[in-house]
């Protein structure tokens, strides 16, 4: 057990180091940080002094280690375009992204898993066909187009819901939340719907595929031969065994939702990390890009780690194999 956990941890650390190396090479090889920090009238000597001060003349491995130690402390320097510490920018915007992503994930799961199970059990029913065809439409619709269509229908034509920003937010500690005001909640509806629809289609298809796989196995055939009632068979025996891969998928989807929220955020001008990142790319604002990359990588790695450990807790087969 311990060995398995250590193994997973080591894997996570390697992934983070790889991402950090990519992020670092963006800082080190692309663009010149000095010319982004000083004005036109700075002399060559002053620039050279600044360069020496910042340690940009040190050997690359030394610089990389310094970059790592700063990154671990959440220090990514100043944003080139906004002249504010990057960590402050992200601290301010993280709640917006997390609220949007987590609420969408909950909706996508609550709707997607039952629909997936339904389509796997009643394979040829009319509702299944309807769900599957509409889910294919969902796969073919890019996220931003879903958002635009929702804005057009509910914002422009019906004028029911706000189409940009978060509305009024309330500060709780350092966390700004839109969940406690009516304008904040109303602002959430369309972005959440956009993200949910996109994820929903994937979850339905994955749950269905997994469930059908399980329904084909010998132990289900055997249970059927034993005369176990159809309902008990589907929900007790099959579903239990479907949940394993579904947890994996859900974990990966959660990471995807956070990443895909950057498109949703751009469509709805949602003041989250994704919008910040998109603007940073447009402005070639390296520190912000690097910080976003590292934060997203960290979220992905943590989710993967949790999923792996959950597997271990939930799947009794892994207990014995983990021991040797």
């Amino acid at each position: 057990m311990l060995k398995l956990i250590l193994n997973r941890l080591a894997h996570s650390v390697v992934v983070m180091l790889a991402v950090a190396l990519i992020a670092f090479s963006m800082v080190a090889f692309l663009g010149d940080p000095i010319s982004n920090m000083v004005g036109q009238d700075t002399t060559v000597a002053e620039r050279a002094a600044l360069r020496e001060n910042l340690g940009l003349n040190d050997p690359l491995p030394v610089q990389f280690v310094r970059f790592l130690s700063h990154a671990v402390q959440g220090d990514f320097g100043l944003s080139y375009s906004l002249r504010v510490p990057v960590s402050e920018l992200f601290a301010e915007r993280m709640p917006a992204t997390l609220e949007l992503s987590i609420i969408s994930a909950i909706f996508a799961l609550l709707i997607g898993i039952p629909l997936g199970i339904h389509t796997a059990i009643n394979r040829d029913s009319f509702t299944t066909q309807a769900i599957l065809s509409s889910s294919l439409v969902g796969v073919s619709l890019p996220t931003f187009l879903i958002g635009i269509l929702l804005i057009l229908i509910f914002g422009v034509m019906l004028r029911w819901l706000p189409t940009f920003g978060r509305g009024d937010v309330v500060m709780i500690g350092g966390w700004s939340t839109g969940l406690l005001t009516s304008s904040g909640l109303r602002s959430l509806v369309l972005p959440v719907a956009t993200l949910t629809i996109f994820q929903l289609t994937l979850i339905i298809r994955l749950v269905r595929a997994e469930m059908m796989e399980v329904l084909r196995t010998d132990f289900i055939k055997f249970a059927r031969a034993r005369g176990i009632r159809r309902k008990a068979l589907n929900y007790r025996h099959a579903l239990k065994n479907t949940m394993m891969p579904v947890i994996t998928v859900v974990g990966l989807q959660l990471g995807n939702i956070i990443a895909f929220s950057l498109i949703t955020e751009s469509v709805f001008q949602w003041p989250g990390m994704g919008l910040l990142f998109v603007q940073a790319i447009g402005n070639a604002d390296i520190p912000v890009m690097v910080a976003y990359l590292m934060i997203i990588a960290l979220i992905f790695v943590l989710i993967n780690l949790i999923v792996d450990l959950l597997h271990f807790v939930l799947d009794p087969r892994l207990h014995s194999s983990g021991a040797n």
Binding site: A259, F260, F277, A284, M289, I296
Partner: peptide
């Protein structure tokens, strides 16, 4: 494996971003 754990759109954005700096 490492790349697959990130969504394609994010990879494409980062490559594009790198060229914007370059």
């Amino acid at each position: 494996d490492v790349q697959l754990s990130f969504p394609a759109i994010l990879i494409a954005l980062i490559v594009d971003g790198a060229f914007r700096i370059l």
